[in-house]
């Protein structure tokens, strides 16, 4: 069993080495931080990362892949060695007596330990911070309600007053009021409802995800965020953008015939530019509201 032992030891050593090398991750940087991302910014690896938390996820993915590669190569060497060394040929016979494979057990325990480290040290903390520990009011988060429907994303902002208007399915009109804001609620007067996700950078954003009809999945690959949009539920996730530019929001759950077209632009602004956008975007809603009163 010397060979098996040597293989597993070298595999473990290789694993440790790669673990040290892995830290930078293999996400691609964006050449021009202010411009919009084009095909050239994406490659065969992970897409660019514009989020504050994404680095941790990328690092975990990277470590995992080096770990997997090390194990696979280790197994592979042993496998190919056996195929060549122990092929059937004249003068060679199998040995029925079972080999003792202590190194294999050591390797298995090593794998288990490593998995435990990844789970406890990386996965659970990242998950907890992204999905559970939402920013408090002290962090001044921006709240956006994301309402999915076949086959559009609606983004609902509270507007300058910071209060969301009441919504009710009865008021839904596909053309004028896609999410059913109650026209009688003054808090809704300056609300912004748009199909384009505009966000400031360097400020926590809480997206409250829901759906009008079927299950969708709110996915922004460059933001390393994904959350199913489930009718009847409103599920919060949060993130913080670090780079400006224009990107895409995708749907990751089959939602019908045009599932593949269910994408929305995401524009990441500097804080001042975002404030301008809010001012501009809430203006037409006010006009619409006034028209409504005249009627």
């Amino acid at each position: 069993m010397r060979i098996c032992g040597r293989t597993s030891i070298s595999a473990l050593a290789g694993m440790a080495l790669l673990f040290c090398l892995a830290t930078p991750g293999f996400a691609q940087g964006i050449a021009d931080a202010s411009g919009s991302a084009s095909v050239a910014d994406y490659g065969y690896g992970l897409p660019p990362d514009v989020s504050a938390h994404g680095h941790g996820i990328d690092q975990l993915i990277s470590i995992l892949h080096w770990f997997m590669a090390a194990l696979f190569v280790g197994w592979g060497i042993f496998f190919v060695y056996c195929l060549i060394r122990f092929r059937q040929r004249a003068g060679h016979a199998a040995v029925a007596h079972p080999v003792k494979a202590k190194p294999a057990k050591a390797l298995e325990i090593g794998v288990i330990a490593f998995e435990a480290v990844l789970l406890l040290g990386f996965s659970i903390p990242i998950w907890g911070s992204v999905k559970n520990d939402l920013p408090t009011e002290a962090d001044d988060p921006l709240r956006v309600r994301v309402i999915a429907e076949q086959f559009n994303w609606n983004f609902h902002y509270a507007g300058p007053d910071g209060a969301f208007g009441r919504t009710n399915p009865e008021f839904i009109s596909e053309a004028t009021n896609p999410i059913g804001i109650d026209p009688g609620d003054s808090a809704g007067a300056d609300d912004i409802v748009t199909g384009e996700l505009n966000l400031p950078i360097e400020r926590p954003v809480i997206c409250e995800i829901s759906s009008k009809d079927v299950i969708h999945s709110f996915s922004i690959p460059v933001m390393r965020i994904k959350q199913d949009a489930i009718p009847g539920m409103r599920i919060p996730v949060w993130f913080e953008a670090r780079k400006t530019g224009t990107f895409q929001v995708a749907c990751a759950q089959l939602c019908g015939n045009n599932h593949y077209k269910m994408l929305a632009p995401m524009v990441l602004h500097l804080p001042e530019a975002f404030a301008d956008w809010v001012r501009e975007a809430s203006a037409p809603a006010e006009e619409f509201d006034e028209d409504d009163f005249e009627d």
Binding site: M1, I3, C4, W75, F78, F79, C82, L83, F86, R87, Q88, H92, A93, A94, V95, V99, A101, A104
Partner: peptide, 9 residues
């Protein structure tokens, strides 16, 4: 995998 060791494949 270990079953391959010292076999006659």
């Amino acid at each position: 995998l270990i079953s391959l060791y010292q076999a006659s494949i």
